[in-house]
Simulated assay, not measured.
Amino acid sequence: MVRSEGGGRVAGDAMAGETTRRGTLPVQRLRPGDHAFCRYTERPRWDLVAAYAWTGLARGEKVIICPAPQADRDTVRDRLEEHGPSLDHVCARGQLVFAGMRRLLHPYDRFTPARQCQRIQEEIAGALAKRYAGLRAYIDMRWIADLGADVAEVMARENNAAHLFAARSYSEICAYDTSAFEPAVLDALRAAHPHDLLDGPGALRALHAAGSVRLVGEADMATQIEWISALREAFKRSAHDGHLVVDLSRLHFLSVGCASDLLSLSTDAHRHGRIEVRLDRDKATLLIGLGSRYLKHVVLVEDC
């Protein structure tokens, strides 16, 4: 591993002991093989759905959008097109499909975990056979009431679906309407998923722990106040020990202004013996370009 005393080089053994990418993610960071939970109130976050769908299309994956049973498919398509060009071409060639759970389960007319998993495996195989890079699905879980499915069976499926994602050719978002499920049920379902999504693109969430802060989402002008507040809180909490980990590995975007804020606050926190910043190579390059090498107590650690 290469390490710089002044943050000028990037170390390569970040997140030792963390063997899985469990936890909160922005939708843009979902990768093939990821299984994620999100919740919404009143109406789906179409910006989240669009970001997920357009990312898959750009990667050459097949995309299935399974909206709520009562949703009008033309309206759903219009919502996606608000965030990109016309979908005529990808719909015509079958790369983007709008399909309710009844259609997805066909020829079965009743949900069981085994039947749904079988159908998804068939869809994955079909997508790969047509030379798509993989398959991704967005599923609005209001289909449960529509099909009269047992929530306990759905819970069993969510808890035992790892085999669908093992080959890293399938990703899935399960979206839950908060008005359709009891809070305790939602909490249990969230715990059954490896990943919990931010509410939508453009959000920032700070996850504080002893000696560390993980910043998830986007750090830019719109979230700069929250960004600075979270960093100040982290520096305050770690002042006694003098060692802080600032984890940016799940940050989708870091603006020059927010990167400068981090270095300015780190300069003021010179009494910290060590500030370890975990980040990808692009963000490391940005911080190095802004002068992180001059802060002897800041160490950049690459975490892909």
Rank of each mutant, 00 (worst) to 15 (best):
G23L: 04
E158C: 07
A269Y: 07
M101Q: 09
Y40F: 10
P107V: 00
R119T: 02
L189N: 03
I139R: 15
R9Y: 13
A259Y: 09
S171D: 02
Y294Q: 12
A50Q: 07
A58M: 12
R131I: 11
S260G: 11
I120F: 04
A284S: 10
G17P: 02
V97K: 10
G84T: 02
S179C: 03
L265I: 06
E302K: 00
F111E: 00
G217C: 04
V154M: 10
R21E: 14
V299K: 07
A259S: 04
T223I: 05
M1V: 14
D74W: 08
A149W: 09
L215N: 03
P44H: 03
A127Q: 01
R3E: 14
H193Y: 06
G211N: 01
S229K: 13
G200P: 03
R136W: 02
E233W: 10
L300G: 02
G56T: 07
P69S: 08
F235Y: 15
G8I: 10
G257N: 14
L198W: 07
F253P: 08
P201W: 01
L265K: 04
R250L: 05
L295S: 04
A58F: 10
H208E: 04
S169E: 11
T20G: 11
R102W: 02
V246F: 06
L189W: 06
G202F: 06
K283S: 02
D47A: 11
Y176W: 01
R281G: 10
G134T: 03
